[in-house]
Design a protein around this nucleic acid. Structure first.
Lengths: 340, 340
DNA sequence: TTGTACGCGTTATCAA
DNA sequence: TTGATAACGCGTACAA
């Protein structure tokens, strides 16, 4: 067990160097001998040792992925993109799933050493100043996904626009009392995206001459359950919204749940929008903002590889397209509620 | 960048071999020199190269984890246990997340070669005969988790007992019309556990002189949504159950959803039990069967390492404790329904 | 107990 | 274009 490059070389009657050249298909090798080598490889069922390759290249062929709440569908989907892109070039991911502040701190403190990984992808966590310093000190090529820092290459969705689109959509339907339901913005794991989406919502509302009352901006943990609670509070307030725009599909699902429990119905009594366009959104008939989650991860890897190749961090900020997907959870408000 | 074992040796004024011996704390090294070496290691902040180590030891220090639906909370929790156990001994996991039959086939076909991984953990997939043959041909030490094959070492929960406990619980409360809601049993990714739990339920019912009518055994995809549909069908049938025992918390959540939509209430109109005791179960106040998911993964790694060390596959079948957790979703049936 | 030399399987360098 | 040879960093006989 364990056929080596030497075995192949002997079989093909060439030197090990030649086999190596064939493997990494470098130009300067005679077509005939290349064919011989390839035949030998097939016959022996040879697979090059990744380990030996790593050692020789002085590269780990491994990249670190820091990603919060990997078990959430949206995070998982982003990771799938990362994984697939890495696999296609023979790289391995090593994932740091962070689920609380302490872990975030720990992960950045013992930041993956260059001798352990060749690069770094950070998903949905916008680095603090101190974290940035650690990253720079590590010297690791780094790409952000769904996170922001003005000095780091990043692949992001247009969250502000997303908020706008959702808001314009319900305004166009005739809504005026609009609420936003997003994440806590002050916790250690706060998602920047929620804040940006809110900004977009505010902007669109303002342009339409609408002001989001302070009570119309709800925040909670990023869970269906918490969202349901917040929604219940919003809907039982004196002057409830006719539309709730959510920072995620998961939270929108919570809103739908709350609406059902209150004996109300969507979209008759309330319009709801989500964000992400998860499978869930389709199931629930949720109007939402579609963003390319898988592709964001995939793209981040492409950019990281280019970076590691010495390429430029050229467009520091790469923005991915999003689009509004209209389903059954939004409609014109009941006339009585508009005037009431 | 990259301080090597040689640097440490020079600094400590010893040979490289000695440093190596200290690193792998072998016995035959003088306490004094060991101290010197350790000091040098600290001062230089030396971390041995995993790659070089792998190459030298001719071990990959990597184990393959085949696991379906990793994004599901229960699978993820099992994986966390695996990951943590591996990390503590310097091993890396390489995960094969399988989400459909084709992928299952592909994963087993190109079964992780021994030159790529040192061992194999298979979660929630009971190998077919052909798969077993591939495993044996690969020569990889293998441990199953939540899966069964009489010739393979495995760490499993007592699913039959779990079904019994749930069933006895509702019988004790006075229920007679009992339904079971589990996974499809004939698909390529069918979970053995669902079938075993049903067997347990059947057994307990039989001992109490109760027969589960054919219509009282529902099966669907393992999702909240599908479970809700099945539950709706059960509950709107001519002679609906007063208790539904589910093969998972996720499915139980679907049942709760359906109950709400039908304008019924739990536990007044229906008792519901889940399985797994996820966080979700606590949120929902779900009576369920607790099983040590994290520990199952952790334990599997321990067993695998022992196996790789040439240890015996001794207790081929290791059963983990489970227990009934009673919450708010179960109660005595309404009298009218008992007699009706 | 300790140091030296060799091997692990690959890539890179350099002559040929 | 090709082959021999020296790294890469560690573990381990073997000799001292």
């Amino acid at each position: 067990m364990g056929v080596t490059i030497g075995d192949v070389a002997r079989r093909a009657g060439v030197g090990r160097g030649t086999v190596s050249r064939v493997l990494n298909d470098r130009a300067n090798v005679d077509p005939a001998t290349r064919e011989r080598v390839l035949a030998a490889i097939r016959e022996l069922d040879f697979v090059p040792s990744k380990t030996a390759r790593r050692l020789s290249l002085r590269r780990t062929q491994t990249i670190a992925v820091i990603i919060p709440f990997l078990s959430r569908p949206s995070a998982f989907e982003r990771f799938r993109g990362i994984e697939q892109a890495l696999a296609s070039v023979g790289y391995d991911p090593i994932v740091f799933n962070v689920e609380d502040a302490a872990r975030r701190e720990a992960v950045f403190r013992e930041l993956p050493r260059p001798e352990r990984v060749d690069g770094l992808i950070i998903v949905s966590l916008s680095p603090h100043q101190s974290e940035l310093e650690r990253i720079e000190r590590s010297g690791l090529p780094t790409v952000l996904v769904d996170a922001h820092h003005r000095s780091l290459p990043r692949v992001v969705g247009n969250d502000v626009l997303g908020g706008q689109l959702a808001c314009q959509h319900v305004i166009g339907l005739g809504h005026r009392r609009i609420a936003f339901l997003g994440d806590y913005s002050r916790t250690a794991l706060a998602f920047t995206s929620s804040r940006l989406r809110l900004a977009g919502v505010r902007g669109a509302a303002k342009r339409a001459g609408i002001r989001l009352a302070p009570g119309m901006v709800g925040a909670g943990e990023h869970s269906r359950r918490a969202a349901a609670d917040v929604a219940t509070r919003l809907l039982t307030s004196p002057n409830p919204p006719t539309a709730i725009l959510c920072a995620s599909d998961t939270q929108a699902a919570g809103v739908l749940e709350a609406v059902g429990k209150l004996g109300l119905s969507v979209p008759r009594d309330l319009s709801v929008t989500g964000y992400d366009d998860l499978e869930l959104a389709d199931h629930l008939g949720l109007t939402t903002i579609h963003q390319p989650l898988f592709e964001s991860g995939f793209r981040a890897v492409e950019r990281l590889l280019a970076l590691m190749d010495g390429g430029p961090a050229k467009p520091l900020r790469e923005v991915q397209d999003i689009r509004l997907v209209v389903r059954r959870s939004t409609a014109a408000p009941e006339r009585s509620m508009v005037t009431g």
